[in-house]
C-alpha cells in the first residue's frame, strides 16, 4: 500500500505498524496522541481516495471528500463500536459521503437503476459469477457506464464484502429494498456488458 508523504519510510519499521486497527484506536482514545490517528490515516487514505475518485470521477472533489471523510472518522472514532471491521466502517462513511454528495449535485438524475422513471422488469436473476469472473478491464468499463449508485452498491457487496444489513444502514433503506437494488444493478451491469462486448460469451 502507498503511504502518505509525512509517514513514508519511517512507519514500516515502527513497532506501531504491527498493531491492529483496534489496538491503534484504543491507544488513540486513551492518549489522544495525533500520531495514532496518523497511522490510521496512513493505512486507509489511499483506499478512501481511490474510492472517492472512482465514485466522484473528479480528483479535486475526491481530495476534498477524503479530507471531509477523515474528519468525520476522527470526530466519530469514540463511537466506533467494533461490531464491524474498522475498514468496513471507514468504507461505509466513504460511500455514504459520496452518495450523499452525488444526490445533492444530481437532483434531477437518478443515482440507481430502480430510481429511474420506468425501471425495466427483471425476469432472470444474474448469477454472481457473471460479474465476479468478468475480465477486470471489462468490469472497469462496465462499472463506468452504469449509474453511480449501482456501481457503489456492487462495490459495497462484491469488493468490500458488506452484508445486506450494512448496506441497508449506509443507504438508509430496508434490507428488501437493498436486495432489489442489487438485483437491478447486476441486471444493468450485464446489459451494459452485452451492449459493449456483444461478441463475448462471458
Amino acid at each position: 500500500m502507498k503511504t502518505p508523504s509525512s509517514f513514508r519510510g519511517k512507519s514500516a519499521k515502527s513497532p506501531l505498524s504491527k498493531k491492529t486497527d483496534s489496538e491503534v484506536i484504543k491507544l488513540y482514545l486513551k492518549t489522544q496522541r495525533s500520531d495514532y490517528f496518523g497511522l490510521l490515516y496512513q493505512r486507509y487514505s489511499t483506499k478512501v481516495f481511490s474510492k472517492c475518485i472512482s465514485l466522484l470521477k473528479d480528483e479535486a472533489l475526491a481530495q476534498d471528500a477524503t479530507q471531509e471523510i477523515f474528519t468525520k472518522i476522527f470526530l466519530n472514532l469514540a463511537k466506533f463500536s467494533e461490531r464491524s471491521k474498522f475498514s468496513t466502517w471507514v468504507y461505509s462513511i466513504t460511500y455514504n459521503y459520496c452518495i450523499d454528495f452525488l444526490r445533492k449535485r444530481k437532483k434531477s438524475k437518478a443515482l440507481f437503476s430502480d430510481e429511474m422513471e420506468n425501471p425495466p422488469d427483471i425476469v432472470d436473476d444474474v448469477p454472481d459469477s457473471a460479474l465476479l469472473e468478468m475480465e477486470v478491464i471489462k468490469l472497469k468499463k462496465v462499472l463506468e457506464l452504469i449509474p453511480t449508485g449501482d456501481k457503489a452498491i456492487l462495490l459495497m457487496k462484491y469488493q468490500d464484502d458488506m452484508s445486506i444489513k450494512e448496506i441497508a444502514t449506509i443507504l438508509d433503506k430496508s434490507e428488501s429494498a437493498i436486495k432489489m437494488k442489487i438485483k437491478r444493478a447486476k441486471h444493468k451491469a450485464q446489459n451494459v456488458y452485452r451492449d459493449i462486448f456483444p461478441n463475448n460469451l462471458n
Binding site: F37, I53, L132, M134, Q159
Partner: peptide, 30 residues
C-alpha cells in the same frame, strides 16, 4: 476468483496519493 477485488487493487495502485495538503489539514484538525 473475484474481479471486483482485483479491480480494487488495480485502482488503488494506479490512483494518485491524496495531496500532502489534505493530510496536513486532516492531521491539523486532529
Amino acid at each position: 476468483n473475484n474481479s471486483f477485488k482485483k479491480l480494487g487493487e488495480l485502482e488503488e495502485n494506479q490512483a494518485p496519493q491524496p495531496s500532502p495538503q489534505t493530510e496536513r489539514n486532516v492531521m491539523g484538525t486532529a
